[in-house]
Structure formats: C-alpha cells, structure tokens
Nucleic acid binder design. Structure first.
Lengths: 145, 145
DNA sequence: TAAATAAAAGATATTCTTGTCCTTTAAATA
DNA sequence: TATTTAAAGGACAAGAATATCTTTTATTTA
C-alpha cells in the first residue's frame, strides 16, 4: 500500500500543476491538466470538483473557463488537500486500527507511530501549494508518470 | 486513509496475539484469535493462511491443532508482516505515484518523504514480533478494538 | 480404521475505490 | 439572444479490498 490513496496522488499533482500553470486570468482546462499529470481525465474532473467545493482551487465555466488557484491559496499547506481527500487517518488514529488505543490504553505501536505521524503532519503542513512553482517551471521537478 | 490496509492491521494484531498466547505445544484456534483481536473470523483465516505460507506463523490441522509461532520467529521484525500483506509501498516508491520519480528526476515531495519512509522502515524493522509479550501479558497493551 | 477436529482451499458475496458516460448549468461571445 | 464552451452533477461500470460460505485435506484419538 502506498502512503496516499491514488485519488489523493492525483489531487496533489493536479493542484501543483494548476498552481504553476495558471493564474486567475489564465485558467487551465481539465484536458490539459489530466494530460499534464498523466491521470484519467473524467476521474480527475470529479476530484477537482471536490477540491473546488472545498475552496482549495477555483473554477469557472464557459469559454476561457477552467481551473485556477487564488494567490492566497498558494500559501495553503498540502495537508489541506490530503485531509480533503484521504481524511485525517494519516495524522491521527491508531496504526493498528484500534479505536480504544490511547495514551492510557496504548496499542503496541502507539509510541513509535506517534512520532511518525507527527513528522508526516509537519511535512505536509509546512509545505505549501505554491512553493514548487519555480522548480516546476525550471523543469527540476516532475509531475508526470 | 490509514497507514496500513485493514488486512494488514488484522495481520499484525493477530500475529502479536498468537505470539503471546501460544507455544508450539499450546496452539491457538482461529475462533479464539478472531475474538481476541476483534476481527471477522473467516476473513482472518484467509490472512493467517497467507502468513503461514510465508513462514511467518505456523499451523497444524486436526484436534489440538491451530496456529502458533516458532521461537525464532519471535525475533522477526514487524516489517515482514507488512511486506507480506501491503507490499513495500510504504518503504519505497514515490509518494505522488510517479514511476519516474528518482534522485535525478524527483517529484516535489521526494526529499521530505525519503526521511519519513526511512523512519517507518526503521521502526518496523527494529520492532520484533515477540517484544510485546510481557506487556501484553500484563495487560499494559491492548489488541482489541 | 472410523469419527471428530481444525486448518486449507475454492467459490461467491459485499463494499469501497477508481474510472466512465451522459445530461445540465453557467459563462462568454458572435 | 442564440450558440458555443467548459465545468458541475448524476448515474453507471469496472476493479480491488473485504467478508462469507462450502468443500476438502490433514491430524488426532477413540
């Protein structure tokens, strides 16, 4: 199993792609996004609808419409995308799936995973949607399969 | 999404339960294991069959048969269970699902997740199946929902 | 050796995730 | 204002994960 669901992988890649390829005056269409990140177009459309409802990205219909991201959303952390799609399972909850697991009633892996979860959460909440734009433009980073 | 698949959660809990509840001369049946870790009995049976084939646990059929674990398997790391069930996705591969992601062609999260993966792998490969027996016996740790 | 026991194995069912299709709505522009 | 464009929305389909059921095999013991 991977760290993120496939849906969440698509979501993160798409948001980063939108962040560096579009502005509110130059929107980008679903076709181009899907091609840009190697994802199934119609499935990605559903994912972006979801992210749009949650205010992480924006969209407009009609000619010259498409997806874009507001300036201030570029400062949002990636953890918002992950929580919107995969929930908080990576950050909270018991690694062994025990609902009763807690400090007082810990599962065997409780302490070890507390630190791992913290680190995952830190990375995702300190990394912003916009911070890769320069490297993406320069081709140092890749979003395609 | 959680860190492990549900199947893997059952697997780890079951193996730890077997480790502390049974010996090669005192085997434990699937009914009791499933009750002991709150999991669906028949599904757990499939999982244990799988782990048994892979040599992580042992079993014998017939009266007084059941599952048990060999002395030396108690020293095996939990990573063996995780790899047997969920594969190596947690330890290797790109967080964003990009097959081309590498040191030379990194995805945006490459470096951050390299360290997270390493930590997950370390915890799971340094933690052994047998090391919780004492705490489980004493009731300090829990395996039930 | 026959009967009883318990896991293995194979088949099927259910649920969730992923992916596709078709119609509707909103926006731009001719 | 009619037409075109592109996303939104609803319904459906395929696949994978999870769960259950039934039959078979191996082992013990009466």
């Amino acid at each position: 199993m991977a760290i993120f669901s496939r849906t969440c992988e698509y979501a993160i890649r798409a948001v980063l792609y939108i962040a560096h390829q579009s502005t509110p005056s130059q929107k980008i269409g679903i076709k181009e996004i899907a091609a840009g990140i190697d994802s199934p177009e119609l499935y990605l459309a559903k994912i972006l609808q979801n992210l749009s409802k949650k205010g992480i990205i924006n969209s407009t219909k009609g000619p010259h419409g498409g997806f874009y991201i507001q300036e201030d959303s570029l400062r949002k952390p990636l953890s918002e995308i992950v929580e919107a799609i995969d929930g908080e399972g990576l950050f909270r909850g018991c690694a062994l799936g025990l609902s009763q697991c807690s400090e007082l009633n810990p599962c065997p892996l409780h302490d070890q995973f507390k630190s791992i979860r913290t680190q995952i959460h830190q990375v995702l909440s300190q990394t912003t949607i916009g911070e890769f734009n320069q490297e993406l433009v320069e081709g140092i980073l890749s979003l395609r399969k």
